[in-house]
Design a protein around this nucleic acid. Structure first.
Lengths: 199, 199
DNA sequence: GTCTATATCCAGATAGAC
DNA sequence: GTCTATCTGGATATAGAC
């Protein structure tokens, strides 16, 4: 077929189509309310292909999960190269998280809004995965270094990220109408005001 | 039978047995990984009874959900009668939440750790339910009254309760070894330090 | 109201042609 | 590798005895 007649863009690779279809369905309906047939229909592929590529529904979910956690981990790398100091790095993470909540809604919802242990057999709680353990580690180090008030690291961790993840949840659930960036300064200023060292 | 020979205590009413059995199973395995047969076996009743009392699995979950939300709402009543001022009231709520996390693990987990919209048809997100809307309302009023720094109420809401709910999640997931009360002072002091009015 | 036995349905998974 | 057609298990739900 002549090149100029090819009005249709190159189709996405089959496994990508499966993953995006599954991601949207899992987030919209919840993992257990989605069947392999649903994924197959939405992705426009056959059941056989899904089993060939991923071994089944759980395999699709696991591929998504691993991939997204890896991307989150790489995000920490990027932020670490960009700026220094815990406060600046955390703020940069939060800024990106808020941004992605608007632009990559499904990915954020799948990572931060799902109970993975309920559908991924032998998966650890998300707070034990690499990126989250890493963040907690950075906070622990910063407290040791006197960058933060000397409190239990896990308390600082939940203050910084627990509150902003909750904002993300509220936004994804439609309880907040404005893009989250509208709240960025208020949130971070207030958090860090509380966490600042006394002197 | 002579009274003194009745070593066995009066059996719990049948519907209570069903509810407690279901609660534990839902929390331990997740709603969708529990069958009506599982509940029936653990409660020591027949399938028929479950359908008679609750109309099915979803009915059991809804009864649990409604009941626990009502109790949470009553808890706010109690706290309001006990103390005055937003800070004292919120702290009292958090103190009780932390206490219940140790003593009523399953109830807390079912309310704060489950995605109810995935198994209760036409249920609103938990943050739209009465107790949570009420808390947000109290924060809004306190900001208007100058009790808190003038920031968006939803930001104050997530700072106060988002962080402490995240601590509860971490505790329930086994990522925190100590009872949460160990962190109460650090958490609340830090939060309110950030939220205090400037003057 | 409570129980057992049974019916019905649908999801996950596979077989085998192409 | 991709597809369609099919199998099988297990879940919800019901029927009907007690």
């Amino acid at each position: 077929m002549p090149y100029l007649l090819r009005t249709v863009p190159d189709p996405e690779p089959l496994d990508c189509r499966i993953l995006t279809a599954a991601l949207e369905l899992f987030v919209d309906r919840g993992y257990h309310n989605v069947s392999v047939h649903d994924i197959q229909k939405r992705a426009g592929v056959s059941i056989g292909s899904i089993y060939n590529h991923f071994g089944g529904k759980e395999g699709v979910a696991r591929a998504l999960y691993d991939h997204l956690l890896m991307e989150l981990d790489e995000l920490i790398d990027i932020v670490e190269q960009e700026v220094g100091g815990l406060r600046a790095q955390c703020n940069a993470m939060i800024r990106r998280l808020f941004g992605f909540t608007e632009t990559h809604r499904y990915m954020i919802a799948f990572v931060f809004d799902a109970k993975h242990t309920e559908f991924l057999s032998e998966s650890v709680p998300i707070n034990r995965t690499r990126p989250f353990v890493r963040l907690l580690g950075k906070i622990t180090a910063a407290i040791k270094a006197g960058e933060l008030k000397p409190i239990a690291p896990v308390v600082a961790y939940t203050l910084i990220f627990g509150s902003c993840v909750r904002l993300v949840n509220l936004r994804l659930d439609g309880l907040i109408d404005d893009p989250l960036m509208a709240y960025f300064d208020e949130l971070t200023d207030t958090v860090w005001a509380g966490l600042a060292t006394a002197d």
